[in-house]
């Protein structure tokens, strides 16, 4: 009898924990949605303080260039190496350029750049907002009637939406350079064959779609970082947790939205 009662209690406790977790998750999703809505509804106020956005474009975008550049160069090289390995013995090497071009332009370039950007920027935003919250700076803004979303989140979101496509174009350019260097140095394919392959099925529409979707990824990175910054509780540990959650959630949302955009557009 006791055994049965204990079992019922454990099931009840597990159910309660699950309900509590589910409730917390749904509340967080709701607050994320509200923050996204509030950010979008204030986007017109951006032009009243363009200097803040410009400084964020530099801090978040231009300062990401070295990291993105290194990753893009190796991305091109790895794509070529993997493509050669997969194609050997099955597909003629004149299609190597096609495979590399399509992979980089449609998926690898935008998604990997967005992921790297999220790793650097979403964490930075979450840490900044989180530490502002714990040191009462957000409260100070509120009592001075300075809307934190308008002055902190909107300029950062705009900077991310503008700069991530620019970074993606730069990353794709460097990935092609990396790919060419790898082809020349390590693969038994002439540069002429490779470049002919590149041009064979090149479609400007792919580049447009690939770069455009990074605008959505940019907004995701900024809003996710801000959301977890606002949710941060406690001191340094709370801010640390916020940054971890920001980067993980950004990565997941980038892939989810990549899939949704692919379904809608392709």
């Amino acid at each position: 009898m006791n055994f049965l009662l204990e079992g019922v209690c454990k099931i009840g406790e597990t159910g309660r924990s699950l309900a509590s977790f589910g409730g917390g998750f749904l509340r967080s999703v709701y607050r994320y949605g509200v923050l996204a809505k509030q950010t979008i509804s204030r986007i017109h106020l951006l032009f009243k303080n363009p200097d803040i956005t410009i400084s964020h474009m530099f801090n978040l975008g231009i300062e990401s260039v070295p990291l993105v550049s290194i990753i893009a160069l190796f991305l091109g090289s790895v794509t070529v190496t993997q493509a050669v390995y997969q194609m050997s013995g099955f597909i003629p090497m004149r299609y190597l350029g096609v495979l590399v071009c399509k992979s980089i332009v449609t998926e690898l370039g935008p998604v990997i750049t967005a992921m790297v950007f999220a790793g650097r920027v979403a964490t930075g935003i979450a840490a900044e907002i989180g530490s502002m919250k714990t040191s009462e700076q957000l409260d100070a803004m509120q009592v001075l009637i300075l809307d934190p979303i308008r002055y902190l989140i909107v300029p950062k979101t705009a900077a991310c939406v503008i700069m991530l496509p620019v970074l993606t174009i730069w990353a794709e350019f460097l990935a092609f350079i990396g790919a060419i260097v790898t082809v020349v140095l390590t693969v038994d394919v002439t540069l002429f064959t490779y470049l002919s392959g590149l041009r064979l099925f090149f479609n400007a529409h792919d580049v447009f779609i690939g770069v455009s979707k990074t605008m959505v990824f940019g907004a995701i990175v900024a809003i996710t970082g801000a959301h977890f910054g606002f949710e941060a509780k406690g001191g340094a540990e709370g801010v640390g947790n916020a940054t971890t959650k920001a980067v993980v959630t950004s990565a997941v949302l980038i892939l989810v939205f990549d899939f949704i955009i692919a379904l809608l557009v392709l």
């Binding site: 530490s131 502002m132 040191s135 009462e136 700076q137 409260d139 100070a140 803004m141 009592v143 001075l144 009637i145 300075l146």
Partner: peptide, 25 residues
């Protein structure tokens, strides 16, 4: 309001901290 620890905006200089509400309101 004077908060505990002053809650100054870290990213701004003292002058900008003081000017921010004046400039906006």
């Amino acid at each position: 309001i004077l908060f505990q620890g002053a809650a100054l905006f870290d990213s701004m200089s003292v002058g900008e901290n003081l000017a921010f509400p004046l400039r906006e309101h």
